[in-house]
Structures are given as structure tokens and as C-alpha cells.
């Protein structure tokens, strides 16, 4: 008699864990082995990875396709500036409080735009982002339309010396990415996360199971908004300068993120990671071509969406039955002869 065993971890996922742990140690040590430009680039990679994971959680799992996440990136960035300049808060506290404020703000926003269905929801999020951009452009004390720089005193308060500041900024980005990736992973493994997947796969079935769809979506929206704002704060801590057009750029904070997730594989945890790596690879090779590079990205995203909707990771997974972040349960029939 063969008894089935249910398990989640696979050999590949355990190997991935070990490799990831080693990789993290190497990455954490980057300020000692990487050059300044590389460190900066890697910091950017981690921040994009975080944005991609968050967008993927919304669109790929909760069915909330937003093209307005720049609202919260920009809001987080502006809160860093406002709370340090006018509130006298230390930058890191300002960034965290910015996240909290974003969460609070996202509730009334959700109550409005959740009335729009599907694609109209997407454009609704864009309207909200535009409202943010135009509003911050009206605030003269933050430089109005032309923006402002983080005062030298505040920058200095972060750490002694430029290289220490850059290292700190890098570690914050790395830390944020780790927190976001693990939070999304743990959330999707939780009861509520499973509920989300149920919603994605069938709203009717999910409501039949007694899952409050609206509430679960709202929770995802609020939490992603908070995290997105925190990442926004970190992005502008790296840049040290903010303006409404940069802070609320649909291309920088939404288009790129969408391309990353679509190319990597939407609705998978591994997708955003692969997508981020591919995106930066493409960007570093094609950056000199400017607009051509963006057109290539657009074409690649369309082709992927039409021909391989589960993205690059989907192709890899179907081919090798791999899962680095074990989410699905697997069933193995135990053979008594081979215990």
C-alpha cells in the first residue's frame, strides 16, 4: 500500500534556500567589494525588485491591476522630504511614517476607486496618481513644480561621510527587498494569502468559501500602498532630490515595473526576481539607445503576454517543474520498497 505524503518544500527549493543565504551574505558585504557605481546600481535593482513584488501581489494575485502605483512612490518620497525638513524627523523615521500615512490615505482612495471594475480600475488609479502629482506641484514650500533637494544637514545626519551614506542607502535597499520578498511570500502562504489565490482563480468559488473578497482586496491594497511608499522614500533618499514629475512618473514607477513582472512571470513569486534581472540586463546593454530601448521593452512585454502569459519563469517552470519559493503543495506517493 502506498501512502501519499503531502509536502511543500522540494529539493530545488531547499537548494535555493542555501544558495540564497550564501548570496545574501555576499550581497550584504557589497560595500566592501563593489565600486560606487555598481553599489548604486545594485541598490536600484533591489528597490525595483521590491516594487515589482508589490505590484505582482496586487495584479497577479489580488486582481487589482494598477497603473497608478507612482502615486505612492511619489508620496513616500515627498513624505521623506516634508517630514525631515518641516518635522525635523530623522530620515529613516520619516520614511516609515510616510508608509503609515500612505496606508491611512489608501483607505479612502480604495473606497472610491474600488467602484471601478477591471481596466477602469486601472485608469482610476492613474487619475489618483495625477491628483497627487498636481497637488504636490502646488505646494510652494516643497518647491512647487520644480521640486526641491534634501538639505545638506539632513543628508549629513544619515551617516558620517559619503561612502558610509552610500553603504547605508544600499543596505536599506537590500533590507527592504528582503523584507518585501519575505513578507509577500509569507503572506501568500498564510490563510489570507491562500484566499487571495482562490479569488484570483475564481471569485465565485472564493465567495462560496466565505471569503470576504472586498476586504481581502482592500487589505492587499493598503499594505502594498504602505510598502510602496516606503520604497518610494528609499528611492528618493538615494536621489536626494525630488520633483513632481520625477516622483509621480508613470514610466519610471509603473511602466517599468509592469514590464518587469510581465516578462518575468505574473502571478508567480519568482517572476519579479527574474524580470528585474532581465530588465537591468537589457537596460545596461541598451541604455545608450534611449527611446529604442523602451520600444524594445514594450514589444517584448507584448510578445510575452501573447505567447507566454506566464512569462520567462513560467517557461522555465513548465520545462523543469521547478519551484524556488514553495507555495503549492505537492503529493508524493510513497513506495514501500523505497521509503
Amino acid at each position: 500500500m502506498r501512502s501519499p505524503a503531502v509536502y511543500r518544500a522540494t529539493r530545488a527549493s531547499r537548494i535555493a534556500m542555501v544558495v540564497a543565504a550564501l548570496g545574501l551574505i555576499v550581497l550584504a558585504a557589497a560595500p566592501w567589494w563593489a565600486g560606487r557605481a555598481d553599489l548604486r546600481l545594485m541598490g536600484e535593482v533591489f528597490l525595483y525588485l521590491s516594487l515589482a513584488c508589490l505590484w505582482n501581489l496586487m495584479a497577479g494575485y489580488a486582481g487589482l491591476v494598477s497603473v497608478g502605483q507612482q502615486a505612492f512612490v511619489g508620496f513616500g518620497g515627498y513624505m521623506l522630504f516634508a517630514l525631515t525638513i518641516f518635522g525635523g524627523l530623522p530620515p529613516i523615521a520619516a520614511i516609515l511614517i510616510g508608509g503609515l500615512l500612505a496606508a491611512l490615505l489608501s483607505i479612502p482612495i480604495a473606497s472610491l476607486i474600488f467602484r471601478l471594475k477591471g481596466a477602469y480600475f486601472a485608469i482610476g488609479t492613474w487619475v489618483v496618481a495625477e491628483v497627487f502629482r498636481l497637488t504636490f506641484a502646488q505646494i510652494a514650500s516643497l518647491g512647487g513644480g520644480s521640486g526641491t533637494s534634501l538639505p545638506v544637514g539632513i543628508v549629513r545626519s544619515l551617516a558620517d561621510g559619503r561612502s558610509a551614506r552610500e553603504a547605508l542607502s544600499y543596505w536599506l535597499a537590500l533590507g527592504a527587498a528582503i523584507v518585501v520578498v519575505s513578507a509577500v511570500y509569507l503572506f501568500l502562504r498564510s490563510r489570507r494569502g491562500l484566499a487571495l489565490t482562490a479569488i484570483r482563480d475564481s471569485e465565485v468559488a472564493a465567495s462560496g468559501l466565505g471569503i470576504d473578497i472586498w476586504r481581502t482586496k482592500l487589505e492587499v491594497y493598503v499594505v502594498t500602498s504602505a510598502f510602496t511608499a516606503i520604497i518610494g522614500g528609499l528611492i528618493f533618499l538615494q536621489k536626494l532630490r525630488i520633483s513632481p514629475d520625477a516622483a509621480f512618473s508613470v514610466n519610471d514607477w509603473t511602466a517599468f515595473v509592469i514590464f518587469i513582472v510581465v516578462i518575468g512571470g505574473i502571478g508567480t513569486l519568482e517572476g519579479p526576481i527574474i524580470g528585474t534581472l532581465l530588465f537591468f540586463l537589457l537596460r545596461e546593454t541598451l541604455a545608450d539607445f534611449g527611446t529604442i530601448y523602451l520600444m524594445v521593452l514594450g514589444v517584448v512585454a507584448i510578445v510575452v503576454m501573447l505567447k507566454a502569459p506566464k512569462g520567462v519563469w513560467g517557461l522555465i517552470r513548465d520545462r523543469y517543474d521547478l519551484e524556488l519559493f514553495p507555495l503549492s503543495y505537492r503529493i508524493k506517493l510513497n513506495d514501500p520498497k523505497d521509503p
Binding site: F259, I266, L294, M295, V299, A301, I302, M305, L306, P309
Partner: peptide, 16 residues
């Protein structure tokens, strides 16, 4: 998702 993301891609292509 597909119509949304494909037209979004088109938007970026046309613009650039």
C-alpha cells in the same frame, strides 16, 4: 490582464 497590459505596452511603444 492581457488587453490591459498589451495596450499599455502599445502606449509605451507609440510614445517612444
Amino acid at each position: 490582464l492581457p488587453p490591459l497590459l498589451v495596450t499599455f505596452g502599445l502606449s509605451v511603444i507609440i510614445q517612444n
